[in-house]
Amino acid sequence: MNLTLKIWRQRNNADKGGFKEYKVTEVSKDMSFLEMLDVLNESLTEKGEDPVHFDHDCREGICGMCSLYINGKPHGPLQTTTCQLHMRSFNDGETITIEPWRAKAFPVMKDLVVDRSAFDRIIQAGGYISVNTGGVPDANEIPIPKTVADKAMDAAQCIGCGACVAACKNASAMLFTSAKISQLALLPQGQVERKTRAEKMVAQMDAEGFGACTNTGACEAECPKGISITNIARMNREYFTAVVSSENL
């Protein structure tokens, strides 16, 4: 396959940046999307041009490091991570537009690399159960109904890639935040800090400058792990209950 790539290039955070076009030839259908970019980068380096910078690590769809807004969709045309996208999803002669995640809370660092540390700070605000190592009860002391554990797992599968933010017209991080709030609100171990957690994580999410939720459902439709917006509803419930009843003034 021969393709034209329209890629966002930006030297650093301060740079204005812009699109640049590249031709890639002899692309195999069996290549992954990122391998296609590897090939481009090899040829750019050989020519003495700065290779395109993009985030990636595990390349098996679980670390959440890869991003890319491909042809108008986060992680490209399939509901999967970019690293799991293969070139057979594209046609010969096609022009592919590649952009970084766009959000005030995700500043572009270089080319397609963005800073997602806002997500870490949301977790730091309360996405945990405060137990120290040691001194915990036996793992089987508290039975958890399978349906509840499964639901918690559904939410816990979030890989923190930020596709939800990219998909959302408001650059909202509600799917990400709600997935963690849900997971811990569902489990008995999470009850003690349940209210405080919801309050603090929502406050941090807002402080980071993510948008509000319009319930368009785009995040759920694009989430590579299929996290459901029922989690957002649960977060809302948790938050409203918390603000009216918690001890935090």
């Binding site: 945990y128 159960i129 137990v131 190592t133 040691g134 915990v136 009860p137 036996d138 793992a139 089987n140 508290i142 039975p143 958890i144 109904p145 399978k146 554990a149 499964d150 918690a152 797992m153 816990a156 997971q183 811990l184 489990l187 171990q189 999470g190």
Partner: peptide
């Protein structure tokens, strides 16, 4: 390790009776 992880909220697979 298992005790610690469960206390942290790791959603391990469970049987219908609620045990791991």
């Amino acid at each position: 390790i298992i005790d610690q992880c469960v206390a942290q909220g790791v959603p391990f697979a469970r049987e219908y009776g609620g045990l791991l």
